[in-house]
Design a protein around this nucleic acid. Structure first.
Length: 428
RNA sequence: GCGGAUAUAGUUCAGCGGUAGAACACCGGUCUGUGGCACCGGCUGUCGUGGGUUCGAAUCCCACUAUCCGCCCCA
């Protein structure tokens, strides 16, 4: 048997309805905040990711699905291609390629779709996973650099979580400063670690060399006191970054979105600057991050584009669904059809089909049975579809042009003329 | 990439060297136009894959693969 490959999966009903639900809520929230959809390719030039996400990150270093696309003609060049591991790089590439900033206005773009990373699969972690994300990007003159945009994006996410019905979330907030601050902070960290790293865990000893920021992410209890004493990023922010962050917090306070400052929240993509954030949830096991994002001033320039500061986020759709399912209350998906048409007796399929067509045209969602079923079987089949009513189409009904409509739950049955059926069944 | 656990019917699982089972689910009948109950009957498997040990392997051994839980990383 051929099976879905490692880390990929089929999303079947009824779970697929939950995915649709979250997607629909997201589209509605995006509409309220004036975001429009962008769809970028699922694979891109490998360099797009190595230059934006960062050559030294885990994502680029070991998790990408990359292949060499061979030249098939003299005029073609061989090219290294990669399945997108995230979508911000693709959106910024499209922004540059189509000159979206040329008219001077702010771009507010959202996307939904699969992303690919070659990690070991686990609960809430797949090799093909689904993200919904958005970016606010544009020339600085359009206000793209304003802390008001950071706060608006974060507030929008709180709104989305509320609408979807996910309750037990925590917002972690930090500022990692601009490129300049980060350099100084990294040096300071290295210097401070030099003396104490000997007593820390093996992972931290490695991190101290490769990426000192990651030490802050360590979860080994014995290391915590040491980490507490390390220099803090907030002490290394320059004045503009400090003011920017203060303004973000001020607005969040004003709109009543609660957050926890977490100076140790370090994100794994190199392009982040200033504001970074993460929403976490307890029902997700080891993969506690529901969504994450931050500002990426400088990313456009890294990709050869104009100056175009921006802020964005990506949320894990798979994890949203897991969180919904872990909060038993939330995951209510209503039944799809309102009625089940039960043709009764030989020759009734045609009459039932005609009636079903009329009713569906009037907006009634229907399931259609078969004339070979006995009534008993039709009722059972109707119940399984979740339909509210069964409409019996037998010889008597067709002759009289009135139909027996039975409420499945109460057992109550009425005779309804054809002209009023749609209304009874909840159509137009 | 590292550590641990698991893999038998559609599902949950039992069987732990001697003819592959239970429950639930599903299908049919009792019951040809009014179900959900009850009773009766029935179906379903390369026992994850490949090797090995043995007269004989679902069972013991080895390798592989997949899933789950951690680590790592991130959404």
């Amino acid at each position: 048997m051929i099976k879905a490959v490692r880390g990929t999966r089929d999303i079947l009903p009824p779970d697929s309805a939950l995915f649709q639900f979250v997607e629909a809520q997201a589209r509605e929230v995006f509409r309220l905040y004036n975001f429009q959809e962008v769809r970028t390719p699922i694979f891109e030039d490998t360099q797009l990711f190595s230059r934006s996400v960062g050559e030294e990150t885990d994502i680029v270093g070991k998790e990408m699905f990359t292949w060499e696309d061979k030249a098939r003609a003299q005029s073609e060049k061989a090219q290294s291609l990669t399945l997108r591991p995230e979508n911000t790089a693709g959106v910024v590439r499209a922004y540059i390629e189509h000159g979206l900033g040329d008219k001077g206005q702010l771009q507010k773009l959202y996307y939904m779709g699969p992303q690919f990373r070659r990690e070991r699969p686990q609960k809430g972690r797949y090799r093909q996973f689904y993200q919904i994300g958005a970016e606010v990007i544009g020339p600085a003159s359009a206000g793209s650099e304003s802390p008001a945009r950071d706060a608006e994006v974060i507030e929008m996410l709180a709104m989305l979580l509320d609408r979807v019905g996910i309750k037990g979330w925590t917002l972690l907030l930090n500022s990692v400063g601009c490129a300049n601050d980060r350099g100084k902070y990294n040096e300071a960290l290295r210097a401070a670690l030099k003396d104490v790293v000997g007593q820390m865990c093996a992972d931290c000893q490695r991190r101290a060399e490769t990426n000192p920021l990651r030490v802050l992410d360590c979860k080994v209890p014995e290391d915590q006191p040491t980490i507490e004493k390390l220099p803090k990023i907030s002490e290394y922010l320059d004045e503009p970054c400090r003011e920017n962050f203060a303004e973000v917090k001020k607005i969040l306070d004003a709109v009543g979105v609660k957050y926890e400052l977490n100076e140790r929240m370090v994100r794994g993509l190199d392009y982040y600057t200033r504001t970074t954030f993460e929403f976490t949830h307890g029902g997700l096991g080891a993969q506690s991050a529901l969504l994450g994002g931050g500002r990426y001033d400088g990313l456009s320039e890294m990709l050869g584009g104009p100056k175009a500061p921006g802020i964005g986020f990506a949320l894990g759709l798979d994890r949203f669904v897991l969180a919904l399912q872990s909060e038993a209350s939330g995951a209510q998906v209503q039944s799809a059809v309102s009625a089940y048409i039960a043709p009764l007796g030989a020759g009734m399929n045609a009459a039932a089909a005609k009636l079903a067509r009329e009713l569906r045209a009037q907006g009634v969602a229907l399931e259609l049975g078969d004339e070979s079923f006995r009534l008993k079987k039709s009722f059972e089949a109707a119940e399984r579809t979740g339909a509210k009513f069964v409409v019996i189409v037998g010889e008597n009904e067709v002759k009289a042009d009135t139909f027996a409509v039975k409420d499945i739950k109460s057992g109550e049955q009425k005779t309804i003329p054809r002209s009023e059926l749609a209304k009874t069944l909840g159509g137009r």
